[in-house]
C-alpha cells in the first residue's frame, strides 16, 4: 500500500524519522547486537580479556540442569496461565453476551484489572496468601490445608499462576465479548428455530466462529506469561523456592544482574529473542488471516 500523493523534500523526511531511529539504534539494536556478540564470548571475571568460543555458551546453557528446569517451569507456568485466563474469560463473556440488562455495568466491573500492574497484582495475591496474615491462607488452614508458598514449590506455582491469570482475564474477556457480538444474530436464531439448545448453539456455532479470536488470544496470553509477568515473580516468589517459579525472563535477570554472568546471560537473551521472533511471526501470519474470515 502506497500513497499516490507525496511531498517532495530531500532533507525533511530524514529529520522526521531521526528521533525514532536514534532511539531504536541506541536502545534496541545496539544492545541486542551486544547480546548476540557476547553470547559467543567468554569473559574473565574482571572483564579484562575475552575469548571467542562459538556456541560454547549455548552448549553449556542447554546442559545446565537449572536452565532446563527453568524451561520446564516456564512451559508449565505459561500454559497454566493461558488456560486459566482464557477459559474463565470465555465463560464470563458467554454469560455477559447473554444478559440484556446490565451488560455495560458487568463489562466495566470486569475490565478494570487490566489497569493493575503485574507487580501490583503480585502484591495483592501475596497478601491474601501470606502464610502468617493472609486471609485465604487462614481459611485454607482452617480447612486442614497447610499453606506456605515460601517452602512448597507447587504452592508457589499455584500462587503466581492465579495472580497472573487474574490480571489477564479482563483483556481476554473484552476480546471474547467483542468477537461474540460480531457473530450475526440470525445464525443463532436459525439454530434455535431448528431446536438447538444453548449449549449446542455455543459448541456448534459460537465457538467455531470465535476460533480466530481464540488463536489470537492464545498467542497474546503466552507472550504475556513469558515476558510481562516478571513483576509478579519478582514480588511474590523471586523465582523460588529452589527455582520452582524461576521463569526464563526472571532467570536472565537473576543471572545477569545479580549473578553477573555476562556470557551466560547473553546466551539466554539470544534464546529469548528467538522465542519472541517466533511468537511475533505466528502472530502476524495469523492476524493477516483474521482479516478475511
Amino acid at each position: 500500500m502506497e500513497k499516490r500523493v507525496v511531498f517532495r523534500n530531500r532533507v525533511l523526511p530524514y529529520i522526521l524519522v531521526a528521533p525514532q531511529i536514534a532511539v531504536t539504534l541506541v536502545f534496541f539494536i545496539w544492545p541486542a547486537s551486544q547480546a548476540l556478540y557476547q553470547s559467543v564470548l567468554i569473559e574473565d571475571p574482571f572483564g579484562l580479556s575475552s575469548e571467542f568460543v562459538w556456541g560454547e555458551n549455548f552448549v553449556e546453557l542447554f546442559g545446565d540442569p537449572w536452565y532446563l528446569q527453568s524451561i520446564q517451569v516456564t512451559a508449565v507456568f505459561s500454559v497454566s496461565v493461558a488456560l486459566l485466563a482464557l477459559t474463565t474469560a470465555l465463560y464470563l463473556a458467554v454469560q455477559a453476551d447473554r444478559v440484556i440488562r446490565g451488560a455495560m455495568a458487568y463489562k466495566t466491573l470486569l475490565v478494570w484489572p487490566y489497569a493493575v500492574a503485574p507487580a501490583v497484582a503480585g502484591v495483592l495475591w501475596l497478601f491474601l496468601f501470606n502464610p502468617t496474615l493472609g486471609i485465604v491462607a487462614y481459611a485454607l488452614r482452617k480447612l486442614g490445608y497447610d499453606w506456605n508458598h515460601l517452602l512448597d514449590g507447587r504452592q508457589a506455582m499455584y500462587l503466581v499462576v492465579i495472580a497472573a491469570a487474574w490480571k489477564q482475564i479482563s483483556y481476554n474477556f473484552l476480546f471474547f465479548l467483542a468477537g461474540m457480538q460480531a457473530i450475526p444474530r440470525s445464525l443463532i436464531e436459525a439454530a434455535a428455530i431448528d431446536g438447538a439448545g444453548p449449549a449446542r448453539r455455543f459448541w456448534t456455532i459460537v465457538f467455531p466462529l470465535l476460533t480466530p479470536t481464540t488463536f489470537f488470544l492464545v498467542v497474546i496470553n503466552v507472550v504475556y506469561a513469558f515476558f510481562d509477568t516478571f513483576g509478579i515473580i519478582h514480588q511474590v516468589t523471586e523465582g523460588g523456592p529452589a527455582g520452582a517459579t524461576n521463569i526464563l525472563v526472571y532467570k536472565v535477570f537473576r543471572d545477569g544482574f545479580i549473578g553477573l554472568d555476562l556470557g551466560g546471560s547473553a546466551a539466554q537473551s539470544v534464546v529469548l529473542m528467538a522465542i519472541v521472533i517466533g511468537l511475533t511471526v505466528i502472530q502476524f501470519r495469523y492476524i493477516e488471516r483474521k482479516v478475511h474470515y
Binding site: 536472565v252 555476562l262 529469548l272
Partner: peptide, 8 residues
C-alpha cells in the same frame, strides 16, 4: 526483558 544487561 531480552536485552537487560546491554541496555543497562
Amino acid at each position: 526483558e531480552v536485552r537487560i544487561l546491554p541496555t543497562y
